[in-house]
């Protein structure tokens, strides 16, 4: 369990919802998380097909969840970065179509809560349910932006933006991985990096 008085999670949810971190149900929710859990570089948060699912809160460190596409290739999907909540959609949504794993590319610190405890909490707690869509809308917005930036943003500018978000990304991820994250060929990615 998180240390008593540890309001890391409540504080982040406060930022997302605009509520004070001392809001009782946010503190109660925060207290359910295990942690802090420390990771070394290249350790997995979860493996593809893991049965025990957790909701993770990333306090420090960078990584990616990687998604298995229908053509059998793996793509870097969402960036794992400080302040983000992530989980394996397949177990949280009880059978979503995605197959993912998640890896920390740098050392990091995280907190976690089992999907079962998460679900029990939100089902029983009306206040939490009422802000759930608000919280999730934050992550919907992140996904919309990821999609739109992949499609619409100048690729050189997008690369600079990613470097700002994940300093030193090119030291941790291969050019092939980064190219797939951008939805371009390796040679195009090489050109983008050179231009930047």
């Amino acid at each position: 369990m998180a240390k008593k008085g540890d309001l890391v999670i409540a504080s982040r949810l406060g930022q997302i919802t605009g509520m004070p971190e001392s809001t009782p149900f946010l503190m109660e929710f925060s207290a359910l998380f295990e942690g802090p859990i420390h990771f070394e570089a290249n350790e997995n948060l979860w493996e593809m097909g893991d049965k025990d699912g957790y909701l993770w809160y990333i306090h420090f460190g960078y990584g990616f969840d990687r998604i298995l596409l229908e053509d059998g290739t793996k793509m870097l999907n969402g960036m794992t970065e400080p302040g983000i909540f992530i989980c394996d959609e397949n177990s949280l949504l009880w059978g979503g179509p995605s197959k993912t794993d998640a890896i920390m590319y740098t050392p990091g610190t995280a907190y976690r809560l089992s999907h079962k405890e998460w679900k029990d909490f939100v089902i029983k707690n009306e206040s939490m349910r009422n802000v759930l869509l608000h919280i999730n809308s934050h992550f919907v917005q992140m996904r919309k932006l990821r999609l739109l930036k992949m499609k619409m943003m100048d690729k050189v500018e997008y690369w600079k933006y990613i470097q700002d978000r994940f300093p030193g990304i090119e030291k941790y991820c291969s050019q092939t991985e980064i190219a797939r994250y951008f939805g371009v060929s390796k040679s195009t990615m090489h050109r983008i990096m050179k231009t930047a």
């Binding site: 596409l69 229908e70 999907n77 949504l93 809308s137 919907v140 996904r143 499609k151």
Partner: peptide, 14 residues
């Protein structure tokens, strides 16, 4: 709602 856009992101990787 949170996962709605995932499939469209995946498709851009194909």
């Amino acid at each position: 709602a949170a996962y709605t856009y995932q499939q469209y992101i995946n498709n851009l990787g194909l």
